[in-house]
Simulated scan of single mutants.
Amino acid sequence: MNQIAQRLAEIDRKYSQRYIELDPGGYFIIYLDREEELICVKHFTNVISEKGLALDPETGKPIPVRGKVERTANAVFSGRTAKELCIKLFEEMKPPLVNYLDHAAYLGRELVRAETALVSGEEYIQD
Score class of each variant (00 low, 15 high):
Lys68Gln: 13
Lys68Ser: 08
Cys86His: 08
Pro24Ser: 06
Cys86Lys: 15
Gly25Gln: 00
Leu118Thr: 04
Arg80Met: 04
Pro96Glu: 12
Glu110Pro: 02
Lys14Trp: 00
Ile87Leu: 07
Phe77Gly: 01
Asn99Glu: 14
Val41Trp: 05
Leu101Val: 12
Leu101Ala: 14
Asn46Met: 10
Lys94Ile: 13
Leu97Glu: 08
Glu21Ser: 12
Cys40Asn: 01
Arg7Glu: 07
Val76Asp: 04
Leu89Glu: 10
Arg80Tyr: 03
Ile4Lys: 12
Glu122Lys: 15
Asp33Pro: 02
Val41Gly: 02
Leu89Asp: 11
Met93Glu: 15
Ala73Gly: 03
Glu122Cys: 07
Ala54Tyr: 03
Asn2Phe: 05
Glu110Ala: 03
Tyr15Ser: 08
Lys88Glu: 15
Pro64Lys: 06
Lys51His: 01
Lys68His: 12
Leu8Trp: 03
Glu36Met: 01
Asp12Pro: 01
Val47Ala: 12
Glu110Leu: 04
Val69His: 07
Pro57Glu: 06
Arg18Tyr: 09
Gly108Leu: 11
Pro57Asn: 04
Tyr100Asp: 13
Thr72Arg: 09
Ile4Arg: 12
Val69Pro: 07
Gln126Glu: 02
Lys88Cys: 09
Asp12Gln: 14
Gly79Pro: 11
Arg7Asp: 08
Met1Glu: 00
Ser16Arg: 13
Glu115Gln: 15
Ile39Leu: 04
Leu32Arg: 10
Lys83Tyr: 13
Cys40Phe: 01
Ile11Asp: 11
Asp23Gly: 05
Thr81Tyr: 00
Glu110Met: 11
Glu36Leu: 06
Ala9Tyr: 04
Asn99Lys: 15
Arg13Asn: 07
Pro95Ala: 11
Arg71Met: 03
His43Gly: 02
Thr59Ala: 00
Leu118Ser: 10
Arg109Trp: 10
Tyr124Asn: 05
Leu89Trp: 10
Ala82Ile: 09
Leu85Tyr: 08
Gly67Tyr: 06
Tyr19Pro: 06
Glu91Ile: 06
Ala73Ile: 02
Arg13Val: 10
Lys83Arg: 14
Ile29Arg: 13
Glu123Thr: 11
Arg18Ser: 05
Glu70Tyr: 10
Phe44Ser: 06
Ala73Glu: 15
Pro95Asn: 11
Thr59Cys: 02
Ala82Arg: 02
Asp56Asn: 14
Pro62Val: 05
Thr72Glu: 13
Asn46Ala: 00
Gly108Pro: 06
Glu115Leu: 07
Met1Asn: 09
Val41Phe: 02
His43Lys: 15
Ile48Lys: 03
Glu21Cys: 02
Arg18His: 08
Glu115Phe: 06
Ala104Met: 14
Pro24Ile: 08
Ser49Val: 00
Glu91Met: 02
Ala105Ser: 12
Ala73Leu: 07
Glu123His: 06
Leu53Trp: 08
Glu36Pro: 04
Ile125Asp: 05
Val112Cys: 09
Ala105Asp: 14
Ser120Ile: 09
Cys40Lys: 11
Glu35His: 09
Glu21Met: 10
Glu84Trp: 01
Leu53Glu: 14
Asp12Ser: 14
Glu92Phe: 14
Tyr27Trp: 11
Ser78Tyr: 12
Glu92Arg: 15
Gly52Tyr: 02
